[in-house]
């Protein structure tokens, strides 16, 4: 079974959730605030206690050390955090192409993190995540702080990454129009369960 398979995932207030995201597929996930979208992504990334099994390309999460699992599933939190003084220190190697695609000049790597706007942080956090080449992406509102042109840049970059790497993507978002654009299959999280939405987008 290739791709990301979630089987009977449960934690208090959630599930059981069973969901398969094939290689190169993107599943959209929305729901009211407090419905547990973020917690669901955190559980898939094994950042919080839960029961059930999660497979990535046939390998179950518990069969490998947690940090190795997280390197594979690529969780992007809604709020990015930075710990070094300069932007570039957070990246293993400079990725000039990626910077350009997201609308940055290469000298952003020498900037101080405190100079960044929330939108700049969000875009750079995506680039930082992709630098680790995860096989899946768990995106928590990846364009929440962005204007429409930067939203388009981020959508294009994620789509290109998904196709190039056959990555399985779960995209949590609030904007129905955006989810229709980026995800062929969409769910609403309601009462701790996934409710599939019509595939024509209604």
């Amino acid at each position: 079974m290739d791709g990301l398979c979630i089987e009977n995932l449960k934690f208090p207030g959630m599930g059981p959730i069973t969901l398969r995201v094939g290689p190169g597929a993107c599943v959209g996930l929305s729901g009211p605030s407090g419905s547990g979208k973020t917690r669901l992504l955190r559980a898939v990334a094994d950042m919080m206690p839960h029961t059930g099994e999660i497979f990535l390309d046939g390998a179950e999460a518990n069969t490998m050390p947690a940090h190795q699992w997280r390197r594979c599933v690529g969780f992007l939190p809604a709020e990015s955090a930075w710990w070094h003084e300069r932007v570039g220190d957070h990246f293993p190697s400079p990725d000039a192409d990626g910077l350009r695609q997201l609308g940055f000049s290469p000298d952003v790597f020498s900037w101080e993190v405190s100079r960044l706007s929330s939108g700049e942080r969000q875009r750079l956090a995506l680039l930082r995540l992709l630098a680790g080449a995860p096989k899946a992406l768990l995106l928590d509102e990846p364009t929440a702080n962005l204007d429409s042109s930067n939203t388009a840049r981020v959508e294009a970059m994620i789509a290109a990454y998904r196709r190039r790497n056959d990555a399985s993507v779960i995209w949590v978002g609030h904007d129905p129009a955006q989810l229709r654009r980026v995800a062929a299959i969409r769910f609403i999280l309601h009462g701790g369960n996934l409710v599939r939405q019509a595939s024509d987008g209604g």
Binding site: H67, R71, F75, P77, S80, A81
Partner: peptide, 13 residues
């Protein structure tokens, strides 16, 4: 937030 960001990027504890 910093600790969890580092964890989610695949750093060991």
């Amino acid at each position: 937030a910093v600790i969890e960001a580092r964890l989610s990027l695949g750093f060991g504890w």
